[in-house]
Design a binder for these strands. Structure first.
Lengths: 351, 351
DNA sequence: TTGAAAGCGGTACCAG
DNA sequence: CTGGTACCGCTTTCAA
């Protein structure tokens, strides 16, 4: 550690007591506590001369508040998450909270580690985007019970824990179910009958809503589902690329592919192109999120738009409200989505 | 703030002193200090029962070390920076340092704010990717002089401050000059004579090396530069899109466009397509960074590959070395780049 | 108008 | 083997 000037150093240099330094530095001088202008200036000069910066650890230890909230995001590689982080930041800036950002790289151990680390820092609140809730739920529940303000972004697995969850912390999540229904209706409306799904998630439950909507939509259209039409894979572009290959090798070939997110859809688009298929003439591709790139790639992506910044802002808003008023009943807010029809989907080719 | 169990609570429950709790929790029990297994277990049980977690602020206040380093990145919207952050994380994980990530959203005030905030937290070291060095250099120099371990990623403006800089902190940066020369040689070798440049940077100096290499390469090929061939713009995809429009409206039209990074190149590619131009038959496009998407878009991007994770790892390595040995002479490490020739560049169209 | 002093939650030295 | 205690840097009440 670096030796930095302390309050005591400033006090000595200015020839006052530490208390006085504290008053001046925190601007209490002007308000309640009358301090001579002359003393004040002596202190301020000493501060400047020494380059004194109050120690945030000590301040927070003493004052009991850190003025910082933590945000855990799963995966650096997906722009969708940064857009959420952006939203959180926007909301926080209006208040004057600092953000402590951590990313788990989709690693369950790191997820647990960071929740622990953030909690030990005694941050004022925590926003979690969990990848492996089943691994850390106990930890998270304990946190919640210790009355740490907590917001979970995204859904939780459908088991007993999830049921309790809503009583413990606030939640917000995009309405992926609606989104997936819209995507499917759009494709079915275009005459597609064989529709594949690239299901690229780190943890299966993460796409559960989209998967269910996919199946529900097929069924209500009287189309038959088919396990081979579901290509499960990882979360990288390359994974999406490979998974799409598996789908496009099927016979008969699907005429449309729904991809779990835009990043993987870029991979799938590449697959189609490299197989000499035209999009959307030979195969339609649609996905979720509407990251900025989606509108600019060629062909532009039909995608179910999640306003990620709004998700982030909502999470931050919920958290700030809870920090201010810890006894509020927990809320759960769904963020609506909107289908953006672009160039990657079109009428099903005639057989 | 939340009331959490403290060392004292544990001590009371276990019927021992606070010192003993500290020993047990920090595992000193096994090593130097022999403590009865029975006492140890009593303490551990109390810890578990109360869900006690040591307060990181208090620990660090006392121990003088935070075991945390800070990383400041400019822009959430560009995957390139996230890849750098990834590299930093990788390197840090091998040691057991925590990472405090902050992002400035290209806002000079936030940049200053975060440097201040991180410094007040008394982190053990700081890695900076600066967007507005001229605004914060004084602050940064003061930090450096206070012996805060510091690594600057990227280059600094070419003025007196930059000259001093190398004596104050470690630096690492991709060799964009070489990269740009390679890109230009590649295009000139393909017969291109009118080569545009989309210069989309938040702060002009940030692309200085690439700009200079662009001019140098033109000159040494006996081609004449032309200010109208340089389209200055912002840092979003949309900005790249617009800037490329300006270039492609020129008469005669440039046959190749060099774009300052891949993100903007995606915009430029979209411009060409929407103007009905074929890439690379009518116009070639090349850029910098090689973010993951670059290989998957259509056409795939010819780009000067910067191994961003290596940049991050290098920065972290430099920082950790300096933390361990603060008196090391500052180093400056250039990261080599490599031209990835893909489908977005081809022979210049015959006039 | 200013200062003395208690304490926030730990660590680690020294004594027993 | 265990406990008492000074101290890390700051805030805030209370007295002077």
């Amino acid at each position: 550690m670096i030796k930095r000037p302390t309050q005591t150093d400033v006090a000595r240099l200015a020839g006052v007591s530490r208390a006085t330094v504290s008053y001046v530095v925190n601007g209490l001088a002007e308000a309640t506590l009358p301090i001579t202008n002359e003393t004040r200036n002596r202190v301020l000069e000493a501060v400047k001369e020494l380059g004194y910066q109050p120690d945030a650890r000590a301040q927070s230890l003493r004052s009991g508040t850190t003025n910082t909230i933590g945000l855990l995001i799963p995966d650096m590689q997906n722009p969708h998450y940064w857009e959420i982080a952006n939203g959180v930041e926007q909301q926080l800036q209006t208040d004057l909270m600092d953000l402590l950002l951590a990313t788990t790289s989709l690693d369950p151990d790191r997820e647990a580690h960071f929740i622990e680390a953030l909690s030990r820092r005694r941050i004022d609140g925590l926003i979690l985007l969990l990848t492996y809730p089943e691994r850390v739920m106990a930890q998270v529940e304990k946190l919640a019970r210790s009355r740490m303000p907590l917001v979970i972004v995204g859904s939780l697995p459908q088991d007993a824990q999830a049921a309790k969850a809503h009583e413990l912390f606030d939640m917000t999540a995009p309405n992926y179910y609606d989104g997936a229904i819209q995507v499917m209706r759009h494709l079915i409306g275009l005459g597609h009958q064989r529709i594949g799904l690239v299901y690229g998630v780190a943890n299966p439950f993460l796409g559960a809503e989209r998967l269910k909507a996919y199946a529900d939509a097929l069924e209500s259209a009287g189309l038959q589902g088919d396990e081979t039409l579901i290509a499960r894979c990882g979360t990288t572009i390359e994974a999406g690329y490979q998974a799409a290959h598996r789908l496009l090798e099927l016979n008969p070939r699907p005429t449309a592919i729904v991809v779990i997110n835009d990043i993987l859809a870029i991979g799938a688009l590449h697959t189609a192109t490299s197989r000499g298929l035209r999009v959307p003439d030979d195969v339609s591709i649609a996905s979720f999120d509407d990251i900025e790139i989606a509108a600019y790639i060629n062909p532009s992506l039909t995608t179910s738009r999640v306003n990620a910044e709004e998700v982030g802002r909502t999470a931050a808003r919920l958290l700030l409200m809870r920090i201010q008023n810890p006894s509020l009943p927990p809320q759960s807010i769904r963020i609506p989505v909107r289908l953006m029809v672009r160039a990657s989907t079109g009428r099903a080719p005639s057989p």
